[in-house]
């Protein structure tokens, strides 16, 4: 059932939801872009509909909410270890269709790859997802090619239409707040076509693709900064860090921190050996993981086609172009 509410009514809802959940969504933060006098759209807590950016693609994804960039596993001192409390006991997350598909990939990594992950699982519980439908494609998106343009896995949808907010609820918790609200006929829109299309390859010949000359172009073009993986809603790698607090040598914390296979040291082992010295080889490692490597394990591509990697790359390297090159090389 769909309902239409004005801004004041929506803000009232936000404050009621806020009593039960933390609310996270994309927010436009003025003048916080990398370059001066530019803005950025990132995930943060939202208290009012004004905080929520419904029209732009977020630069970074929702993943930080359940996979914090830096997360303390435990504090230690002479007496032992203490696991910190979780950041939230439940959250409402505003996201897009592709992001909801990305969530499946995160679940695969943290709940199916080996035993379920304690820290992920506890933040993953009790989440509600509010879909921000896309009526048209953003730049660099190729969700249609990656089959992530449509989703049914939401609890609620929100769309701004002529200054009013239209909601469709599939979840009891949300539905109860709409009793008495104006009802209307509504179909959730979705993207039917992107400018960018990516060709799928059923079976990739790893050996042939690895030997391909196509990667050499990226040895010099890519600067191995890692932005592409950090903005990616399906990249999950992290590194363990132990630190001690300066004033007390015996107390400190062990934390895990997001890592990037594009960045130096990701694969460095004791003695200094590095498995992928060249940036082009890192690109291949990343690219194949995003498609065939993950598909071999979980039956779906990891990449969901949000194009955030293309949006952010300072060297204008396009990942969808790389995927199409792989398809061509595999012919």
């Amino acid at each position: 059932m769909a309902y239409s509410l004005d801004k004041i009514a929506v803000d009232e809802l936000f404050s009621k939801w806020g009593e039960d959940y933390l609310i996270y969504g994309p927010t436009l933060i003025k003048n916080t872009g990398r370059l001066s006098d530019t803005d950025s759209v990132r995930y943060d807590e939202v208290k009012s509909i004004d905080d929520l950016e419904l029209n732009l693609k977020s630069d970074y994804s929702f993943k930080d909410v359940i996979l914090p960039i830096s997360e303390v596993l435990f504090y230690y001192n002479e007496d032992g270890m203490m696991v910190p409390k979780q950041k939230h006991n439940g959250a409402i997350i505003f996201l897009r269709s592709c992001d909801l598909h990305a969530l499946d990939r995160l679940d695969q990594m943290f709940m199916e790859n080996g035993k379920p992950d304690f820290y992920y699982t506890r933040l993953r519980e009790n989440l509600k997802f509010v879909l921000i439908p896309c009526s048209k494609s953003f730049e660099n998106c190729f969700c249609v090619s990656m089959n992530s343009n449509v989703t049914k896995n939401y609890d609620l949808t929100i769309e701004e239409i002529n200054g009013e907010y239209v909601f469709e609820s599939k979840d009891e918790y949300f539905t109860k707040f709409f009793s008495g609200s104006k009802e209307l006929d509504y179909t959730v829109p979705y993207v039917k076509e992107n400018d960018i299309k990516v060709e799928h390859v059923e079976k990739i010949n790893n050996l042939a693709i690895t030997k391909s000359e196509m990667w050499r172009e990226y040895d010099s073009r890519c600067i191995a900064c890692g932005r592409c993986t950090l903005v990616c809603p399906t990249c999950t790698c992290w590194t363990m860090q132990d630190i001690h607090y300066g004033d007390n040598q015996k107390a400190g914390e062990r934390r895990r921190v997001q890592a990037s296979c594009m960045v130096d040291n990701f694969d460095r082992v004791a003695g200094g050996h590095v498995y992928r010295e060249k940036n082009g080889d890192r690109m291949r490692y990343k690219a194949l993981h995003k498609i065939s490597d993950h598909r071999e394990r979980y039956g779906v591509d990891m990449c969901i086609g949000c194009g955030r990697c293309d949006d952010i790359c300072p060297e204008y390297i396009s990942f969808s172009t790389i995927l199409n090159k792989i398809a061509k090389e595999s012919e």
């Binding site: 990132r42 970074y60 997001q258």
Partner: peptide, 14 residues
């Protein structure tokens, strides 16, 4: 501001 520009994850901000 070179650190802000170089930081891939907005840890340094203006």
């Amino acid at each position: 501001g070179e650190c802000v520009i170089a930081c891939p994850n907005f840890a340094w901000q203006r």
